[in-house]
Nucleic acid binder design. Structure first.
Lengths: 240, 240
DNA sequence: AATATTATTTAGGCTTACCTAAATCGGTAG
DNA sequence: CTACCGATTTAGGTAAGCCTAAATAATATT
């Protein structure tokens, strides 16, 4: 059925697309058809169709040239940030007021995000004290749709011996969150890189609070973002 | 776009239909095509189509014979109660935790009700202490999908001189809620019927707490349900 | 009973968002 | 430079849900 709600007149599907494209272009490169398809569990052919549609919408939401992937336009990015704000506020809300655990709210928020009015968004945000991060440590866009800066780097960028604090975890990789929980790693956990096997890129970490060592594969170290201890000590140093 | 969530595999649209039919058949008579159409803001032709579909679904959700209106089957009623439970829990939730006013939550809940998982439903219910009524005084079906009995009668059924307590207000009639608010009537308000003009069916009430008289037309007195004081005094007398 | 009104259904279409199968493009390996 | 492979696009369908216009049935009016 067709549903247009919340984020003005955008269908649920379109909201999902712009959100995915936002994430996929975070690294600077355009989002490829297949990457979007994988993310949305949809065939590549469907993605092509949708991209063509989004690119030729009244205010185009993506810029897109055949076989070159897609990027969000100004409007597209606004739309994406709106959805992301909804999603992350909802996650925070569910954790804070209903006792959900951080590794359990993603799917729930995914469903609710499209049904949130501006009014409700504002009330939730206010009730939570206008939080800047969600339970996974991901920054929440402001009500003016500005995404807060985030200085953290992926765990995979650290070298042996470095210490860091876990700042955020991308909740997409299914299973990543429970995995981390079971190893005693959460947002705020302090970890030290014991070693990285150059052969298979396995990273061994010490989780300080647990006095315990754990080993993570590249699938996880790419999803976990940390702030290294030195950059923290030097304060605002890394500002740009 | 097509969305199937929450209440198992029923589309949003179907959920809306069964909910409407539930309400419309409350009086015992089948729900007519046009009544459903009005309620859902849809053309009568579309309703016919949907009723045919619902009647021939795998487990039929409605029983329906050409030109005779529709009733819910067992499964249809379960589906409706599920949606209604979602809706009323959400209303209660929004009022209790986000400071919404009772005349402002209906639309919000209408959008969210379809996106509620069983899990979230249960958590909300628990957090609220498994409430039996929503902010409009409407009974909330239990988690086993039993609709609590409700002994209240429409204000329009009272005679002059009778006193009663306002128990629930049907939130559908747009504008009814703000109207009542402005007259100082809420759930729990004690009122006394001063008189009913036999000519145009206008009811004049005294709102005890406000020491104030107000006059309501039949559009309102049919939506406001009350418990008369005597039935209250005699306790469980009116049990069937 | 005949006509008018209203309610309902049928018929034919549209849009959104999917899908599969069959081209086609572009880059890499020989 | 050419063949191949994976990524992408085109073509042709499907399913939901809605709509309008026209036909038909039920009810009301005279």
């Amino acid at each position: 059925m067709v549903h247009k709600t919340a984020a003005r007149t955008l269908t649920f599907s379109i909201q999902d697309y712009v959100k995915s494209i936002y994430d996929l272009t975070a690294a600077g490169k355009p989002a490829t058809t297949t990457a979007i398809a994988r993310r949305l569990n949809v065939s590549p052919a469907s993605v092509t169709g949708m991209l063509q549609k989004l690119a030729s919408a009244k205010p185009p939401l993506v810029s897109y040239k055949k076989r070159q992937g897609a990027r969000l336009t100004e409007s597209g990015e606004r739309a994406a940030l709106e959805v992301i704000r909804h999603h992350r506020l909802l996650e925070t809300w569910l954790v804070h007021t209903l006792g959900y655990s951080w590794d359990d709210v993603h799917g729930e928020a995914e469903r609710l995000e499209h049904a949130l009015s501006e009014e409700l968004e504002a009330r939730i945000s206010r009730a939570l004290g206008n939080p800047a991060r969600d339970p996974h440590g991901e920054p929440i866009p402001t009500s003016e749709l500005v995404m807060p800066r985030d200085e953290s780097v992926p765990l995979s960028a650290l070298r042996a011996g470095q210490e860091a604090i876990v700042r955020r975890v991308q909740p997409h990789a299914t299973g990543a969150l429970p995995r981390l929980m079971s190893m005693g790693i959460q947002i705020g956990s302090r970890v030290k890189v014991i070693g990285i096997s150059s052969y298979d890129r396995l990273t061994t970490l010490r989780v300080q609070s647990k006095r315990r060592n754990v080993t993570l594969g590249p699938a996880l170290t790419g999803q976990v973002y940390v702030e290294t201890i030195d950059s923290k000590i030097k304060g605002t140093r890394a500002r740009e």
